[in-house]
Write a protein that binds this DNA or RNA. Structure first.
Length: 544
RNA sequence: CGCGGGGUAGAGCAGCGGUAGCUUGUCGGGCUCAUAACCCGGAGGUCGUGUGGUUCAAAUCCCACCCCCGCAACCA
């Protein structure tokens, strides 16, 4: 019975992978890269497995920080957002991200969909009105957010922003400040009544508790802990409108001068972008997103994004449709450190994706970014170590294994490969590697999976050394044939196993071996004549 | 008592109740098919501190203390 079952064509699984939306007010750095790359690996893995995948993301283009930057640079917020959106598209392409859809929150499609969703929630009574006093600047003619207010810090007496004092580092509420002024024009502020729409997040306490309970095994530990913290404090209702002039208009007459809060609309971008793809296929998003065991939903981001993905996003999805599928796998990574410190713009140690791609191959970057990924705790990222990893594992390990075999065959036999049998033990190890590594990737642990697959390189080189084909060739032609076949078999499987991680190089290897498209399953290679054999990776000489 | 992560060979890390392990570096050997590549072995640690607690047994659990880092500020 069991045998029969495996013979039946496997049913396609449906997988939606949402990668966090980088915020368009600065260049993308290796922190983003490490947070997002696992999503790409997972997507590529499922595609190789024959499953139906949607990898979606985009640029987060609205919000206060962008308007602040625009004001400083005396350009429009849109110019800022467009500039950085373009750099993101470029950077992501340069490291071979395989997005099915990468948009931006200022796309007309996204904006229209968000307004529809917003209205639907409004009509369904998910929001309520709230009025309270807020700081208003008359000359700017707008309400100010905490970070736009200046005033005297109640703790140290210096001039502070409304959210936290730069001098004594105390965080606060703007209401604690004395003698408040507008951070934009410097004028006095006044208190005025302001109304906003609030989302009844508190009503979803039970649902989120259930969600966490159901999926805690597929969520990273940091996501489980962080979510638990929010739940134990009790979920609070959140404002969904903001007083800004840059963003998506609130589609409700009474609030039409306000914008939708960025986190609400940006996080729903996963939904709008996958709807975009489904539209093309003539599938209704409501049908596709119906809760179902065969629909997996991964979300990849950094740890500071956790509550937005594990609490707010699921609650919004439920508000859209009570029967909606919710995130099943949370892939939330820790931080990249530079030396002992965190990487940040203000410390001036930002390592941008742009400068990396200027100097290095995408595969070199991807390989190292995954191998040193802050999967379970903070980890470091240095170009020196990246070069070291490249030379050691890609050049000396994988590349060398391919080259020592193929170049020998080319030199001694003009590239002719005779028949032979593949080693039984190697076959078994190969099969079990597909299985175990696949399971680890499905669990979202791409670093652990790659570490596992890297061991296959050592297995291969050791096999070669132990069997000494350069000696056997003179003594036992049949044995030499077997060894050669086994090595080529291992190369062929490397070109599959490593494909999600370093796709460009593995496609080059496939071309050399005249293999078809990558698949996540054991493959043999019956090549008889080698042609166009090239070195797979070039050694990087350390220079600065 | 704000919350969280961490302190293990020169460096970077794994182990998280049972003879201290991996990678890199270093030293030596092997091989000569290979891009100073590959394979094997040696040296190197009283596992932050405590003549602390639990245990037959502690890097591993508990307690106290010290130190680093992150979050609560734009930022994954």
């Amino acid at each position: 019975m069991k045998q029969e079952k495996t013979d039946v064509k496997k049913q396609k699984r449906r997988v939606i992978i949402g990668n966090a939306w980088p915020y368009a007010n600065n260049l993308m750095h290796v922190g983003h890269l490490c947070a997002l790359l696992p999503g790409d690996i997972i997507a590529r893995y499922y595609r190789l497995s024959g499953d139906e995948v949607m990898l979606v993301s985009g640029s987060d283009c609205h919000g206060t920080p962008i308007t602040e930057r625009a004001r400083k640079e005396k350009v429009s917020p849109r110019e800022i957002a467009e500039t950085y959106h373009k750099t993101f598209v470029r950077d992501l392409g340069a490291v071979n991200f395989s997005y099915d859809k990468y948009g931006a929150t200022f796309d007309d499609y996204h904006k229209a969909e968000i307004q529809k969703i917003f209205l639907k929630m409004y009509d369904a009574g998910e929001f309520f009105k709230k009025t309270d006093t807020q700081d208003f600047c008359e000359s700017c003619n707008m309400f100010l957010s905490d970070r736009e207010i200046r005033g005297t810090c109640p703790h140290c007496g210096s001039i502070s922003k409304g959210d936290q004092c730069d001098n004594c580092l105390t965080s606060m509420d703007a209401s604690q400040l004395k003698e408040k002024t507008c951070g934009i024009c410097g004028g006095k502020t006044q208190q005025r009544q302001n109304k906003s729409l609030m989302f009844k997040l508190s009503g979803y306490q039970k649902d989120i508790e259930c969600l966490l309970d159901k999926n805690r095994d597929h969520w990273r530990v940091n996501a489980v802990n962080e979510t638990q913290k929010y739940l134990s404090q009790g979920l609070l209702d959140r404002a969904v409108t903001r007083d800004l002039n840059w963003g998506i208009d609130v589609p409700v007459e009474e609030f039409k001068d306000k914008k939708i809060y960025v986190w609400i609309e940006a996080v729903l971008g996963y939904y709008t972008m996958s709807k975009f793809l489904l539209d093309q296929r003539g599938i209704k998003v409501e049908d596709y997103y119906k809760a179902s065991d065969d629909l997996r939903m991964y979300l990849a981001h950094g740890k500071d994004n956790i509550p937005f993905h594990t609490v707010i996003y699921p609650a919004l999805l439920l508000a859209v449709d009570k029967n909606c599928q919710l995130p099943t796998h949370i892939v939330s990574c820790e931080y990249i450190k530079v030396g002992a410190e965190k990487m940040s713009k203000s410390l001036g140690n930002l390592l941008t994706v742009y400068e990396l791609t200027e100097k290095f191959d995408p595969d070199t970057i991807r390989f190292y970014a995954i191998l040193s990924n802050p999967e379970k705790k903070d980890s470091g990222f240095t170009t020196t170590e990246m070069i070291n990893t490249h030379n050691k594992l890609l050049v000396g390990g994988l590349g060398n294994f391919v080259n020592r075999n193929l170049s020998y065959l080319v030199k001694k036999f003009e590239g002719k490969v005779s028949g032979g049998a593949v080693d039984k033990d190697i076959i078994e190890k190969t099969r079990s590697l597909y299985k175990s590594a696949g399971e680890i990737i499905e669990a979202g642990n791409t670093r652990e999976a790659l570490e596992h697959i890297v061991e296959y390189i050592q297995l291969a080189n050791k096999y070669y050394d132990d069997n000494k084909p350069w000696v056997k060739v003179h003594e036992d032609a049949a044995a030499f044939g077997d060894i050669t076949r086994t090595c080529i078999y291992m190369m062929a499987n490397m070109s599959n196993l490593f494909h999600p991680f370093i796709p460009a190089a593995m496609d080059r290897l496939k071309a050399m071996l005249k293999l078809g498209a990558a698949k996540w399953e054991e493959v043999d290679c019956d090549i008889t004549q080698l042609e166009n054999i090239n070195i797979l990776f070039n050694r990087i000489e350390e220079e600065k």
